[in-house]
Design a protein around this nucleic acid. Structure first.
Lengths: 257, 257
DNA sequence: CTTGACCTTGACCCAGCGTCAACCCTCGAC
DNA sequence: GTCGAGGGTTGACGCTGGGTCAAGGTCAAG
């Protein structure tokens, strides 16, 4: 006859756990001796091991209880499902490994490789770090909300970097970060931006509109808000661009005149 | 400016979680508007996404807090450790998959393949199921306590099944399960067992002793107790065998005369 | 002005035990 | 016999990461 600490150590669990299983009805309470101590037979050890195998596999104790007095068929089905969950959890963890790896690598946050490449490209082209940081934060938010469309979004942006005047505008943007609302130099910038938009060929424009189509309006609004928030003159600039026939920022649209 | 539900949905978390992160000091409380509502900027979304990446990877929130304001080096070290844990968890789950698979397969419990093979061999030899069930339960307990030595233990037992008289004794054991203490037929059984022990060659006996060496005494005691518990005449039988010069059951030792 | 959707804080609830607390029981040594 | 160490007993609170009320204050639209 075994005491509670003996069954517990034989099965590799704690005394507290054994009592917990009694309380939950997973393990039948054994006889007590004259002094009220629980007295176990060795079969209890086997029962405990069964319980641990299931519990270790992540089965909630309430479910373990059901399974212990389930038929052979139900049991097999349940085990198949547990196995499915385990496989899923393994895949999830593999995903988490990738995501935390991206936290340290390169741009220090969770972005898919194509986005990292895009930001890298900007750096190569000499675009100021502050601008790139702003872009990065925007992409992080996009990646969190529309991970499956990231590739398409990036594709529609990456081509623009081939135009030297676009790169030039990005470079000028850094100074603009510190301007105060009402700065007269904004007119020139607005002219530049609009002339670049006008220079886009109709096919490219169509592709661009197509690519941004998938971006939900509230995400566009959020990104615009980020811009307005972080750049004091953003609001002024957007109004100037609007006067010249284009509305928005993240997603620019031609206004009907 | 964003409300709490807007940042929450932008980052893919619940409103409750955002407030929880404030309470835990993970996310700085933003300004409140005139009515006491929290007002967020878009940077909070990026912060939240960072938090989620770490938390999803299984990092406790208290640790996440430390990591958020840790230096680059410490952060990298921490991420390396998180990754190590994730890999470990993946391997654990793979182990759990095997163990639950063994729960349904074959002998219905978590035994390594060599033990399953041993029990299978017993069945082939026509040894009664009740005896095999008893063996199985014993092996389960051994496997739980000394998983690394299972192979050695099994090896030291499996050879014995090649002796037809041993198999014969096993077969007679079934009837013995139902005998009452004091049964006169026990003398014959004890004689049989002892004559089998005497027939073992000195080398085999040495190998047998060697193999059982690794089994800790308390485990031996537990298995003996199991035998005594489940077989009413076990105690009598052990005393009869003892009179003939051998002590124990799970692990038999010659007594000095 | 009302309505319904949001916001606020505070408090309780869950698993799966760990960890006291306060008390009783047993066993071996003296 | 009695003392102390080391079992056992029940009961209650603690921890994580929030979910889920509750009881009210606000906001925007009709």
């Amino acid at each position: 006859m075994l005491t509670i600490s003996q069954v517990a150590s034989a099965a590799g669990v704690t005394v507290r756990a054994v009592r917990h299983y009694h309380a939950k009805g997973l393990l039948v309470e054994p006889e007590r001796d004259h002094s009220g101590y629980r007295r176990y037979d060795a079969a209890a050890v086997v029962d405990l091991i069964k319980i641990r195998i299931l519990a270790d596999a992540g089965v909630p104790l309430s479910r373990v209880k059901e399974l212990l007095d389930a038929g052979d068929d139900d049991f097999k089905k349940a085990v198949a499902e547990i196995d499915k969950r385990l496989r899923l959890e393994i895949r999830e963890r593999q995903g988490h490994r990738e995501r935390i790896a991206r936290l340290v690598h390169g741009d220090g946050l969770a972005l898919p490789p194509e986005a990292v490449a895009y930001l890298e490209r900007m750096r190569e082209l000499g675009i100021p770090q502050r601008i790139i940081d702003g872009e990065r934060d925007a992409w992080i938010i996009v990646a969190a909300q529309q991970p499956q469309s990231m590739e398409a979004f990036i594709r529609s942006k990456v081509g623009q970097l081939d135009d030297p005047s676009v790169v030039e505008t990005y470079k000028q943007m850094e100074a603009l970060l510190d301007w105060k609302p009402g700065d007269p130099r904004l007119d020139t910038i607005a002219d530049q931006i609009v002339s670049q938009l006008e220079a886009i060929s109709p096919e490219d424009w169509a592709a661009y509109v197509e690519g941004d189509q998938a971006m939900p309006p509230e995400l566009v609004a959020l990104l615009d808000a980020m811009f307005v928030e972080q750049v004091p003159v953003a609001h002024d600039l957007m109004r100037l661009v609007e006067k010249r026939g284009y509305i928005g920022w993240t997603k620019l649209e031609r206004i009907q005149k």
